[in-house]
Design a protein around this nucleic acid. Structure first.
Lengths: 220, 220
DNA sequence: AACCTGAGTTAGAGCTTCTAACGTATGTGA
DNA sequence: TCACATACGTTAGAAGCTCTAACTCAGGTT
């Protein structure tokens, strides 16, 4: 960003404005009704002009997803930094809370990341890295709690596969299993909540979420 | 279906054909690329002709979702009937297996039910009833296992709210909590699996799913 | 046999993404 | 300071979509 020409700065700014408008539209009427024409109008230009900034609708969506992963990772890591030094159980609870708050503050965005996948979308490498970043934040405190192997085969698969990948991060299989389990449980509650499936059931999803987190901690 | 006129029978058949074609299309390219024109072509007629059968694209989608809920409920209940009399833990495992198999056999359909919601869609009453049917199948064996209250406030909310609803079904709060927890955990694993989020992680999701079910049983 | 109803047709409005061709403004090198 | 290259935004248009309107035609009923 330092040695960017004036043109490049303005261009980047326009891209950001377009993405912001896109998010507003998605929040208002869902991802399927995202229209480049409408975004253009919001920015004060015609639809085709946006093709100077994005290869097409799919690329715009892909970028929104990528941004989302990074934003979520940042939110979780920030929450993690704020509770450094505290007991692992408390840190896990803080991370989980940050995860949930991010999702509920912008449900449409959470669904963009974890809802029905966009057909043409394939996660770029740095997106996977952002996801790994989020998971790692949880793994750190979990490692302090993880006890003996509970599901040997699953833990073995996780340990060997993730060790091969990015140069042996050194997480124990039991820790990784707790991480993945925590992820699926958080997502299970959050996705159904965000999609409104609990609406007619008359209970507070926050309690269920908390219960899941506490169960996870207790089981470790 | 007995005293239906010939016309009505043919009409119903055409509707079914259209829905089958729609499912094929969704399976091939996702829900967003569902096109009435293309369905018409597949049935050997033009696009607008389908408006004689469905009020529009949204109604067709809504109907596919409704059908899905009923189909899923049937699959789970059938599996439940097949293991009647067996110990509750085994019955739960059988139900969970049926649930998973249904989802994996037709991932696009599972996502239609539990992925990003279609904007205009509001679940009709009989759909909610189908969902309740599925949940109840799990509640029966869970009730035999449910122990003392573990999350009092959550269980109280569930018991009172669902008691008010359909004329007191009589499930204990602890049972209901286990049911909802089981649902979110199954969904957590399944939705991430179906969306391909585990693809780069190199472990068998079936093991994670099993582990979740066994944990649930053990915790009850 | 005459009629009514329902199914399918084409035409067209209004939207979408996206390409192509065209002007214009902007920042840079001579 | 002037000329030029490049980037930016425009309009036009193709191909697709949903959905409405008007029309034709075949089936079943009276």
């Amino acid at each position: 960003m330092e040695n960017a020409t004036r043109r490049e700065r303005i261009r980047a700014q326009t891209r950001e404005e377009a993405k912001a408008a896109a998010l507003r539209q998605i929040a208002a009427a869902g991802p399927q009704s995202l229209s480049l024409n409408a975004i253009g109008k919001e920015l004060g230009m015609t639809g085709p002009a946006l093709y100077r900034y994005f290869a097409g609708r799919d690329e715009l969506l892909t970028e929104l997803i990528s941004d989302g992963y990074h934003d979520l990772a940042d939110a979780v890591l920030t929450a993690g930094a704020a509770v450094e030094g505290q007991p692992p159980a408390d840190r896990i609870r803080a991370l989980a809370r940050a995860y949930r708050e991010w999702a509920l503050a912008q449900p449409h965005r959470y669904l963009l990341l974890f809802g029905t996948p966009v057909p043409g979308y394939a996660a770029p490498a740095h997106t996977i890295q952002a996801a790994t970043r989020t998971l790692s934040a949880f793994l750190e405190p979990l490692a302090e709690l993880a006890s003996a192997a509970r599901h040997p085969e699953l833990e073995r698969q996780l340990a060997t596969s993730l060790a091969d990948r990015d140069g042996n991060t050194g997480w124990a299989g039991a820790t990784l299993r707790l991480g993945v389990t925590g992820w699926t449980r958080m997502h299970g509650v959050l996705s159904l909540e965000v999609e409104g499936h609990f609406q007619t059931m008359g209970f507070d999803p926050a309690l269920l979420y908390e219960a899941e987190i506490n169960d996870l901690i207790a089981s470790a």
